[in-house]
Design a protein around this nucleic acid. Sequence first.
RNA 1: GCUGGAAUAGUCUAGUGGCAAUGACAAGAGACUGUAAAUCUCUCGGCUUCGGCCUUCGUAGGUUCGAGUCCUACUUCCAGCA
Length: 416
Amino acid sequence: MIEGLSFKIEKALPNGLGRAGMIWTAHGVIKTPAFIAVGTHGYVRFLSSANLTQLGAQAMLSNGYHLRRRAPEIAGAGGLAAWRPERQDEIGNMPWQGPTITDSGGFQVMSLGSGLGKVVSMEKERQVTNTAHKERLARVTEEGVSFIDPFDAQPDFIGPEESMRIQCQIGADIHMAFDELTSLADSYEYNIEAMRRTERWAKRSLNAHLQHRDDLGYRQNLYAVLQGGRWEDLRRQTAKNLATMQINGIGFDGFGLGGAFLKEDLGEILRWCNEELPADKPKHLLGLSHPDDILIGTAMGADTFDCVAPMREARHGKIYTKFGSLNLRQFRDSGKVLDPGCDCATCQAGWTLGSLRALWRSGDSEKKRHFYNLASIHNLRFTIRLTEQIRAAILGDYFTEFKDDFLRHYYQKTSY
RNA sequence: GCUGGAAUAGUCUAGUGGCAAUGACAAGAGACUGUAAAUCUCUCGGCUUCGGCCUUCGUAGGUUCGAGUCCUACUUCCAGCA
Protein backbone atom coordinates (compact mmCIF):
# COMPACT_ATOMS: atom_id res chain seq x y z
CA MET A 1 0.00 0.00 0.00
CA ILE A 2 1.34 3.39 -1.04
CA GLU A 3 1.01 5.83 1.79
CA GLY A 4 -1.56 8.57 1.74
CA LEU A 5 -1.12 12.21 1.06
CA SER A 6 1.57 14.09 2.87
CA PHE A 7 2.21 17.78 2.83
CA LYS A 8 5.32 19.72 3.69
CA ILE A 9 5.63 23.48 3.96
CA GLU A 10 9.00 24.51 2.54
CA LYS A 11 8.71 28.18 3.28
CA ALA A 12 5.94 30.39 4.64
CA LEU A 13 5.50 34.10 4.04
CA PRO A 14 6.50 36.17 7.04
CA ASN A 15 3.48 37.68 8.76
CA GLY A 16 1.07 35.87 6.46
CA LEU A 17 -0.78 32.72 5.54
CA GLY A 18 0.94 32.05 2.21
CA ARG A 19 3.49 29.32 1.71
CA ALA A 20 5.35 27.17 -0.80
CA GLY A 21 5.26 23.45 -0.23
CA MET A 22 5.00 19.98 -1.63
CA ILE A 23 2.14 17.50 -1.72
CA TRP A 24 3.02 13.82 -2.12
CA THR A 25 0.40 11.51 -3.59
CA ALA A 26 0.41 7.92 -4.84
CA HIS A 27 0.86 9.21 -8.38
CA GLY A 28 3.50 11.83 -7.80
CA VAL A 29 4.40 15.12 -6.20
CA ILE A 30 2.78 18.52 -6.58
CA LYS A 31 5.01 21.49 -5.85
CA THR A 32 2.90 24.34 -4.56
CA PRO A 33 1.46 26.75 -5.23
CA ALA A 34 0.20 24.87 -8.26
CA PHE A 35 -2.47 25.32 -10.89
CA ILE A 36 -4.34 22.08 -11.57
CA ALA A 37 -5.53 21.70 -15.17
CA VAL A 38 -9.21 20.90 -15.45
CA GLY A 39 -10.03 17.72 -17.31
CA THR A 40 -13.67 17.30 -16.42
CA HIS A 41 -14.26 14.19 -18.48
CA GLY A 42 -10.94 12.62 -17.61
CA TYR A 43 -8.89 14.61 -20.07
CA VAL A 44 -8.09 18.25 -20.71
CA ARG A 45 -9.92 19.39 -23.83
CA PHE A 46 -7.66 19.80 -26.84
CA LEU A 47 -4.52 19.03 -24.87
CA SER A 48 -2.70 15.72 -24.94
CA SER A 49 -1.05 14.28 -21.87
CA ALA A 50 2.26 15.04 -23.58
CA ASN A 51 1.17 18.67 -23.99
CA LEU A 52 0.35 18.81 -20.28
CA THR A 53 3.71 17.41 -19.28
CA GLN A 54 5.55 19.77 -21.59
CA LEU A 55 3.82 22.86 -20.28
CA GLY A 56 4.56 21.96 -16.69
CA ALA A 57 1.18 20.71 -15.49
CA GLN A 58 1.54 18.76 -12.28
CA ALA A 59 -1.97 17.41 -11.81
CA MET A 60 -5.41 17.18 -13.39
CA LEU A 61 -8.83 17.72 -11.87
CA SER A 62 -11.75 15.68 -13.20
CA ASN A 63 -15.36 15.57 -12.17
CA GLY A 64 -17.20 12.75 -10.45
CA TYR A 65 -20.47 14.04 -11.76
CA HIS A 66 -19.47 13.83 -15.42
CA LEU A 67 -17.66 10.52 -14.99
CA ARG A 68 -20.21 8.86 -12.72
CA ARG A 69 -21.42 6.34 -15.30
CA ARG A 70 -17.87 5.52 -16.32
CA ALA A 71 -16.70 4.99 -12.75
CA PRO A 72 -16.84 1.15 -12.76
CA GLU A 73 -14.96 1.09 -16.06
CA ILE A 74 -12.33 3.47 -14.69
CA ALA A 75 -11.94 1.34 -11.58
CA GLY A 76 -11.49 -1.68 -13.83
CA ALA A 77 -8.68 0.08 -15.64
CA GLY A 78 -6.94 0.67 -12.33
CA GLY A 79 -8.08 4.22 -11.74
CA LEU A 80 -8.06 7.54 -13.56
CA ALA A 81 -4.28 7.59 -14.06
CA ALA A 82 -4.49 4.36 -16.07
CA TRP A 83 -7.77 4.89 -17.87
CA ARG A 84 -7.86 5.70 -21.58
CA PRO A 85 -10.78 8.05 -22.10
CA GLU A 86 -12.75 8.18 -25.31
CA ARG A 87 -12.08 11.73 -26.32
CA GLN A 88 -14.18 13.99 -28.49
CA ASP A 89 -11.33 16.25 -29.54
CA GLU A 90 -9.25 13.73 -31.52
CA ILE A 91 -6.13 14.29 -29.46
CA GLY A 92 -5.46 10.62 -28.67
CA ASN A 93 -6.27 8.77 -25.50
CA MET A 94 -3.08 8.49 -23.51
CA PRO A 95 -4.02 8.88 -19.85
CA TRP A 96 -2.68 11.58 -17.57
CA GLN A 97 -0.57 9.42 -15.28
CA GLY A 98 0.33 12.01 -12.67
CA PRO A 99 -1.58 13.17 -9.61
CA THR A 100 -5.31 13.64 -10.02
CA ILE A 101 -8.15 15.29 -8.17
CA THR A 102 -11.88 14.78 -8.58
CA ASP A 103 -14.62 17.20 -7.74
CA SER A 104 -17.65 15.78 -6.03
CA GLY A 105 -20.36 17.08 -8.32
CA GLY A 106 -21.17 19.76 -5.79
CA PHE A 107 -20.63 22.50 -8.34
CA GLN A 108 -23.30 20.94 -10.54
CA VAL A 109 -25.74 21.17 -7.67
CA MET A 110 -25.50 24.90 -8.19
CA SER A 111 -24.95 25.12 -11.93
CA LEU A 112 -27.84 22.82 -12.75
CA GLY A 113 -29.98 24.08 -9.92
CA SER A 114 -30.26 27.59 -8.62
CA GLY A 115 -27.44 29.06 -10.62
CA LEU A 116 -27.28 30.66 -13.95
CA GLY A 117 -23.82 30.63 -15.37
CA LYS A 118 -23.47 34.23 -14.34
CA VAL A 119 -24.16 33.67 -10.69
CA VAL A 120 -20.64 32.55 -9.90
CA SER A 121 -19.25 35.64 -11.55
CA MET A 122 -17.33 38.05 -9.44
CA GLU A 123 -18.10 41.34 -11.12
CA LYS A 124 -20.00 43.33 -8.57
CA GLU A 125 -21.73 45.59 -11.03
CA ARG A 126 -23.32 42.70 -12.83
CA GLN A 127 -26.94 42.19 -11.97
CA VAL A 128 -27.35 38.82 -10.35
CA THR A 129 -30.69 37.18 -10.78
CA ASN A 130 -31.38 33.89 -9.24
CA THR A 131 -34.99 33.69 -10.23
CA ALA A 132 -34.42 33.84 -13.96
CA HIS A 133 -33.47 30.18 -14.01
CA LYS A 134 -36.73 28.85 -15.29
CA GLU A 135 -35.64 25.31 -15.82
CA ARG A 136 -34.15 24.19 -12.58
CA LEU A 137 -32.51 20.86 -13.25
CA ALA A 138 -31.45 20.05 -9.70
CA ARG A 139 -33.25 19.94 -6.35
CA VAL A 140 -31.52 19.72 -3.00
CA THR A 141 -32.76 17.63 -0.07
CA GLU A 142 -31.06 16.42 3.09
CA GLU A 143 -30.32 13.12 1.38
CA GLY A 144 -28.60 14.67 -1.61
CA VAL A 145 -29.42 16.13 -5.00
CA SER A 146 -31.99 14.92 -7.50
CA PHE A 147 -31.33 16.23 -10.94
CA ILE A 148 -32.06 15.86 -14.62
CA ASP A 149 -28.99 15.06 -16.64
CA PRO A 150 -28.76 17.82 -19.25
CA PHE A 151 -27.13 15.49 -21.75
CA ASP A 152 -29.76 12.77 -21.87
CA ALA A 153 -32.63 14.24 -19.83
CA GLN A 154 -32.59 11.24 -17.51
CA PRO A 155 -33.37 11.75 -13.81
CA ASP A 156 -30.58 10.83 -11.41
CA PHE A 157 -29.50 11.28 -7.80
CA ILE A 158 -26.19 11.98 -6.07
CA GLY A 159 -25.68 12.25 -2.33
CA PRO A 160 -22.49 12.09 -0.27
CA GLU A 161 -22.38 8.28 -0.34
CA GLU A 162 -22.93 8.14 -4.10
CA SER A 163 -20.32 10.80 -4.71
CA MET A 164 -17.76 8.97 -2.57
CA ARG A 165 -18.50 5.62 -4.19
CA ILE A 166 -18.06 7.22 -7.61
CA GLN A 167 -14.89 9.10 -6.66
CA CYS A 168 -13.35 6.02 -5.03
CA GLN A 169 -14.00 4.07 -8.23
CA ILE A 170 -12.49 6.81 -10.36
CA GLY A 171 -9.57 6.69 -8.00
CA ALA A 172 -8.12 10.17 -8.08
CA ASP A 173 -5.51 10.92 -5.45
CA ILE A 174 -7.59 13.68 -3.90
CA HIS A 175 -11.39 13.78 -3.61
CA MET A 176 -13.73 16.56 -2.62
CA ALA A 177 -16.46 15.97 -0.09
CA PHE A 178 -19.93 16.38 -1.54
CA ASP A 179 -20.94 19.99 -0.93
CA GLU A 180 -23.53 22.55 -1.90
CA LEU A 181 -22.15 25.65 -3.57
CA THR A 182 -24.42 28.63 -3.10
CA SER A 183 -24.69 31.44 -5.60
CA LEU A 184 -24.02 35.13 -5.01
CA ALA A 185 -27.74 35.69 -5.04
CA ASP A 186 -28.47 33.44 -2.07
CA SER A 187 -29.34 35.03 1.27
CA TYR A 188 -27.47 34.81 4.57
CA GLU A 189 -30.19 32.53 5.88
CA TYR A 190 -29.93 30.19 2.93
CA ASN A 191 -26.14 30.16 3.23
CA ILE A 192 -26.42 29.02 6.86
CA GLU A 193 -28.70 26.23 5.76
CA ALA A 194 -26.48 25.15 2.84
CA MET A 195 -23.32 25.42 4.94
CA ARG A 196 -24.71 23.24 7.72
CA ARG A 197 -25.98 20.75 5.18
CA THR A 198 -22.52 20.76 3.58
CA GLU A 199 -21.02 19.97 7.00
CA ARG A 200 -23.43 17.07 7.55
CA TRP A 201 -22.64 15.86 4.05
CA ALA A 202 -18.92 16.20 4.85
CA LYS A 203 -19.30 13.80 7.77
CA ARG A 204 -21.19 11.32 5.61
CA SER A 205 -18.57 11.79 2.87
CA LEU A 206 -15.77 11.08 5.32
CA ASN A 207 -17.53 7.97 6.55
CA ALA A 208 -18.12 6.61 3.05
CA HIS A 209 -14.64 7.58 1.90
CA LEU A 210 -12.94 5.71 4.73
CA GLN A 211 -14.65 2.52 3.64
CA HIS A 212 -13.40 2.68 0.06
CA ARG A 213 -10.25 4.79 0.01
CA ASP A 214 -7.92 1.83 -0.48
CA ASP A 215 -10.09 -0.13 -2.91
CA LEU A 216 -7.81 0.38 -5.90
CA GLY A 217 -4.63 -0.53 -4.11
CA TYR A 218 -3.37 2.92 -3.25
CA ARG A 219 -4.49 5.52 -0.77
CA GLN A 220 -7.04 8.04 -1.93
CA ASN A 221 -7.48 11.21 0.09
CA LEU A 222 -10.37 13.46 1.01
CA TYR A 223 -10.69 17.21 1.29
CA ALA A 224 -13.65 18.79 3.08
CA VAL A 225 -15.16 21.80 1.34
CA LEU A 226 -15.86 25.07 3.12
CA GLN A 227 -18.90 27.11 2.21
CA GLY A 228 -20.49 30.01 4.09
CA GLY A 229 -20.65 32.64 1.39
CA ARG A 230 -19.26 36.06 2.23
CA TRP A 231 -20.01 36.06 5.95
CA GLU A 232 -17.16 35.97 8.43
CA ASP A 233 -19.09 34.20 11.20
CA LEU A 234 -20.12 31.43 8.82
CA ARG A 235 -16.69 31.00 7.29
CA ARG A 236 -14.89 30.83 10.63
CA GLN A 237 -17.51 28.53 12.08
CA THR A 238 -17.47 26.04 9.23
CA ALA A 239 -13.65 26.09 9.17
CA LYS A 240 -13.54 25.15 12.85
CA ASN A 241 -16.20 22.50 12.46
CA LEU A 242 -14.54 20.82 9.50
CA ALA A 243 -11.03 21.12 10.99
CA THR A 244 -12.06 19.13 14.02
CA MET A 245 -14.41 16.68 12.31
CA GLN A 246 -13.21 13.10 12.68
CA ILE A 247 -14.39 9.53 12.41
CA ASN A 248 -12.46 7.02 14.52
CA GLY A 249 -9.75 9.60 14.99
CA ILE A 250 -9.38 10.23 11.27
CA GLY A 251 -10.05 13.68 9.85
CA PHE A 252 -9.76 15.24 6.43
CA ASP A 253 -6.52 15.21 4.45
CA GLY A 254 -6.97 18.77 3.29
CA PHE A 255 -9.57 21.41 2.60
CA GLY A 256 -11.33 22.79 -0.43
CA LEU A 257 -12.13 26.49 -0.30
CA GLY A 258 -15.46 26.83 -2.04
CA GLY A 259 -17.99 29.45 -2.86
CA ALA A 260 -18.85 32.15 -5.33
CA PHE A 261 -16.83 35.26 -4.62
CA LEU A 262 -16.95 38.90 -5.40
CA LYS A 263 -13.41 39.79 -6.38
CA GLU A 264 -13.00 42.34 -3.64
CA ASP A 265 -14.11 39.83 -0.99
CA LEU A 266 -11.87 36.93 -1.97
CA GLY A 267 -8.82 37.74 0.13
CA GLU A 268 -10.76 38.44 3.30
CA ILE A 269 -12.86 35.31 3.00
CA LEU A 270 -9.81 33.15 2.48
CA ARG A 271 -8.12 34.78 5.44
CA TRP A 272 -11.08 33.96 7.71
CA CYS A 273 -11.00 30.34 6.56
CA ASN A 274 -7.28 29.81 6.77
CA GLU A 275 -6.85 31.52 10.14
CA GLU A 276 -9.09 28.78 11.52
CA LEU A 277 -7.90 25.81 9.48
CA PRO A 278 -4.75 23.92 10.49
CA ALA A 279 -1.70 25.35 8.73
CA ASP A 280 -0.17 21.95 8.11
CA LYS A 281 -2.96 20.73 5.79
CA PRO A 282 -3.09 21.57 2.07
CA LYS A 283 -5.81 23.90 0.85
CA HIS A 284 -7.34 23.90 -2.62
CA LEU A 285 -9.08 27.02 -3.90
CA LEU A 286 -11.86 25.73 -6.10
CA GLY A 287 -12.50 27.19 -9.51
CA LEU A 288 -10.33 30.29 -9.74
CA SER A 289 -7.39 31.10 -11.98
CA HIS A 290 -7.14 34.73 -13.02
CA PRO A 291 -3.77 36.15 -11.98
CA ASP A 292 -5.12 38.40 -9.24
CA ASP A 293 -7.14 35.51 -7.82
CA ILE A 294 -4.11 33.23 -7.76
CA LEU A 295 -1.89 35.90 -6.24
CA ILE A 296 -4.40 36.80 -3.56
CA GLY A 297 -5.25 33.14 -3.02
CA THR A 298 -1.63 32.26 -2.51
CA ALA A 299 -1.06 35.17 -0.19
CA MET A 300 -4.01 33.96 1.88
CA GLY A 301 -2.85 30.38 2.17
CA ALA A 302 -4.26 28.49 -0.81
CA ASP A 303 -1.86 25.86 -2.15
CA THR A 304 -3.57 24.60 -5.28
CA PHE A 305 -6.04 26.05 -7.76
CA ASP A 306 -8.15 24.77 -10.61
CA CYS A 307 -10.25 26.52 -13.18
CA VAL A 308 -11.69 26.09 -16.66
CA ALA A 309 -11.02 29.69 -17.59
CA PRO A 310 -7.52 29.44 -19.14
CA MET A 311 -8.63 26.76 -21.58
CA ARG A 312 -12.15 28.00 -22.19
CA GLU A 313 -11.05 31.58 -22.73
CA ALA A 314 -8.32 30.35 -25.06
CA ARG A 315 -10.92 28.59 -27.17
CA HIS A 316 -12.95 31.78 -27.18
CA GLY A 317 -10.04 33.85 -28.45
CA LYS A 318 -8.81 35.46 -25.23
CA ILE A 319 -5.04 35.33 -25.13
CA TYR A 320 -3.20 35.92 -21.87
CA THR A 321 -0.19 38.21 -21.88
CA LYS A 322 1.89 39.84 -19.17
CA PHE A 323 0.22 43.10 -20.15
CA GLY A 324 -3.27 41.72 -19.68
CA SER A 325 -5.47 39.54 -21.81
CA LEU A 326 -6.36 40.46 -25.36
CA ASN A 327 -9.09 39.58 -27.79
CA LEU A 328 -7.58 37.72 -30.73
CA ARG A 329 -10.26 39.03 -33.06
CA GLN A 330 -8.60 42.43 -32.97
CA PHE A 331 -5.30 41.15 -34.34
CA ARG A 332 -5.97 40.23 -37.93
CA ASP A 333 -2.74 40.00 -39.92
CA SER A 334 -0.75 40.98 -36.84
CA GLY A 335 2.83 39.79 -36.86
CA LYS A 336 3.19 40.28 -33.11
CA VAL A 337 4.05 37.38 -30.83
CA LEU A 338 1.31 36.30 -28.42
CA ASP A 339 3.17 37.36 -25.30
CA PRO A 340 6.72 38.70 -25.33
CA GLY A 341 9.08 36.32 -23.60
CA CYS A 342 6.55 33.48 -23.30
CA ASP A 343 8.15 30.05 -23.06
CA CYS A 344 5.11 28.03 -24.18
CA ALA A 345 5.34 25.63 -27.10
CA THR A 346 2.99 27.76 -29.20
CA CYS A 347 5.10 30.90 -28.85
CA GLN A 348 8.32 28.93 -29.23
CA ALA A 349 7.03 27.51 -32.50
CA GLY A 350 6.74 31.06 -33.81
CA TRP A 351 2.98 31.51 -33.92
CA THR A 352 1.92 35.14 -34.14
CA LEU A 353 -1.39 36.72 -33.20
CA GLY A 354 -2.28 37.05 -36.86
CA SER A 355 -1.40 33.51 -37.85
CA LEU A 356 -3.24 32.12 -34.86
CA ARG A 357 -6.27 34.24 -35.64
CA ALA A 358 -6.30 33.02 -39.21
CA LEU A 359 -6.30 29.44 -37.98
CA TRP A 360 -9.15 30.16 -35.58
CA ARG A 361 -11.30 31.96 -38.16
CA SER A 362 -10.54 29.58 -41.00
CA GLY A 363 -13.88 27.80 -40.90
CA ASP A 364 -12.03 24.51 -41.22
CA SER A 365 -12.74 22.20 -38.31
CA GLU A 366 -9.32 20.60 -38.34
CA LYS A 367 -7.63 23.99 -38.30
CA LYS A 368 -9.91 25.13 -35.51
CA ARG A 369 -8.96 22.10 -33.40
CA HIS A 370 -5.35 23.01 -34.04
CA PHE A 371 -6.09 26.53 -32.84
CA TYR A 372 -7.79 25.26 -29.68
CA ASN A 373 -4.72 23.19 -28.95
CA LEU A 374 -2.24 26.03 -29.56
CA ALA A 375 -4.24 28.63 -27.66
CA SER A 376 -4.92 26.30 -24.75
CA ILE A 377 -1.22 25.50 -24.51
CA HIS A 378 -0.44 29.21 -24.31
CA ASN A 379 -3.00 30.20 -21.68
CA LEU A 380 -2.44 27.14 -19.53
CA ARG A 381 1.32 27.62 -19.66
CA PHE A 382 0.80 31.28 -18.75
CA THR A 383 -1.22 30.31 -15.68
CA ILE A 384 1.10 27.51 -14.62
CA ARG A 385 4.15 29.70 -15.14
CA LEU A 386 2.57 32.26 -12.83
CA THR A 387 2.33 29.64 -10.06
CA GLU A 388 5.93 28.62 -10.72
CA GLN A 389 7.02 32.26 -10.45
CA ILE A 390 5.04 32.71 -7.25
CA ARG A 391 6.66 29.63 -5.78
CA ALA A 392 10.10 30.91 -6.68
CA ALA A 393 9.21 34.30 -5.21
CA ILE A 394 8.09 32.80 -1.91
CA LEU A 395 11.19 30.63 -1.69
CA GLY A 396 13.35 33.60 -2.66
CA ASP A 397 11.74 36.07 -0.26
CA TYR A 398 10.46 38.47 -2.89
CA PHE A 399 6.78 37.53 -3.07
CA THR A 400 5.36 40.98 -2.33
CA GLU A 401 7.55 42.65 -4.92
CA PHE A 402 6.69 40.01 -7.49
CA LYS A 403 2.98 40.30 -6.82
CA ASP A 404 2.93 44.09 -7.09
CA ASP A 405 5.05 44.06 -10.21
CA PHE A 406 2.97 41.39 -11.91
CA LEU A 407 -0.34 43.03 -11.13
CA ARG A 408 0.91 46.43 -12.23
CA HIS A 409 1.80 45.10 -15.67
CA TYR A 410 -1.21 42.85 -16.01
CA TYR A 411 -3.98 45.20 -14.99
CA GLN A 412 -2.67 48.53 -16.22
CA LYS A 413 -2.22 47.16 -19.72
CA THR A 414 0.82 49.42 -20.04
CA SER A 415 1.44 48.68 -23.68
CA TYR A 416 0.74 46.06 -26.29
C1' G B 1 -29.84 34.48 -83.19
C1' C B 2 -34.18 32.00 -80.62
C1' U B 3 -36.42 30.13 -76.07
C1' G B 4 -36.43 29.81 -70.90
C1' G B 5 -34.32 31.22 -66.10
C1' A B 6 -31.79 34.64 -62.98
C1' A B 7 -29.99 39.65 -60.84
C1' U B 8 -31.59 41.47 -52.96
C1' A B 9 -26.75 44.45 -48.06
C1' G B 10 -19.24 42.63 -47.83
C1' U B 11 -20.68 37.24 -49.73
C1' C B 12 -24.50 33.63 -50.26
C1' U B 13 -29.71 33.64 -49.37
C1' A B 14 -35.51 34.38 -47.93
C1' G B 15 -39.18 37.24 -49.82
C1' U B 16 -44.71 36.68 -55.63
C1' G B 17 -48.64 43.92 -53.79
C1' G B 18 -48.53 46.38 -47.48
C1' C B 19 -43.39 48.32 -41.56
C1' A B 20 -35.04 48.93 -44.23
C1' A B 21 -36.53 43.51 -46.10
C1' U B 22 -35.40 36.48 -43.77
C1' G B 23 -31.51 33.32 -42.61
C1' A B 24 -26.39 31.94 -42.81
C1' C B 25 -21.39 33.33 -43.22
C1' A B 26 -17.84 37.08 -42.95
C1' A B 27 -16.87 41.51 -40.15
C1' G B 28 -17.08 44.58 -35.39
C1' A B 29 -17.83 44.85 -29.76
C1' G B 30 -18.43 42.25 -25.24
C1' A B 31 -18.82 38.07 -21.88
C1' C B 32 -16.79 33.58 -19.78
C1' U B 33 -13.69 31.44 -12.92
C1' G B 34 -14.80 23.49 -8.84
C1' U B 35 -17.11 22.90 -18.02
C1' A B 36 -25.12 21.79 -20.21
C1' A B 37 -19.47 26.37 -22.95
C1' A B 38 -15.01 24.32 -30.27
C1' U B 39 -20.13 28.53 -26.29
C1' C B 40 -23.26 32.83 -25.41
C1' U B 41 -24.88 38.14 -25.98
C1' C B 42 -24.99 42.63 -28.85
C1' U B 43 -23.98 45.45 -33.60
C1' C B 44 -23.99 44.88 -38.71
C1' G B 45 -27.59 50.90 -45.31
C1' G B 46 -27.00 56.32 -43.57
C1' C B 47 -28.47 60.15 -40.07
C1' U B 48 -30.79 61.04 -35.38
C1' U B 49 -32.43 65.46 -30.23
C1' C B 50 -34.07 57.87 -29.94
C1' G B 51 -39.51 60.37 -31.61
C1' G B 52 -38.23 59.55 -35.91
C1' C B 53 -35.96 61.10 -40.76
C1' C B 54 -33.51 59.70 -45.36
C1' U B 55 -31.78 56.22 -49.06
C1' U B 56 -32.02 51.11 -50.67
C1' C B 57 -33.46 44.81 -53.83
C1' G B 58 -29.16 45.21 -61.95
C1' U B 59 -30.63 50.17 -65.05
C1' A B 60 -34.61 53.32 -66.90
C1' G B 61 -39.60 53.95 -67.23
C1' G B 62 -44.77 52.41 -66.13
C1' U B 63 -49.32 50.37 -63.37
C1' U B 64 -50.95 51.15 -58.20
C1' C B 65 -53.14 54.58 -52.37
C1' G B 66 -48.74 51.45 -51.95
C1' A B 67 -43.69 47.78 -55.94
C1' G B 68 -37.97 43.83 -53.95
C1' U B 69 -42.65 41.59 -55.68
C1' C B 70 -46.82 43.23 -61.42
C1' C B 71 -45.86 45.42 -66.73
C1' U B 72 -42.32 47.43 -70.74
C1' A B 73 -37.47 48.26 -72.49
C1' C B 74 -32.44 47.81 -71.70
C1' U B 75 -27.85 45.63 -69.38
C1' U B 76 -25.36 41.44 -67.49
C1' C B 77 -25.12 36.29 -66.25
C1' C B 78 -26.81 31.02 -66.66
C1' A B 79 -29.12 26.85 -69.27
C1' G B 80 -31.15 24.64 -73.67
C1' C B 81 -31.80 24.98 -78.98
C1' A B 82 -29.65 26.74 -83.49
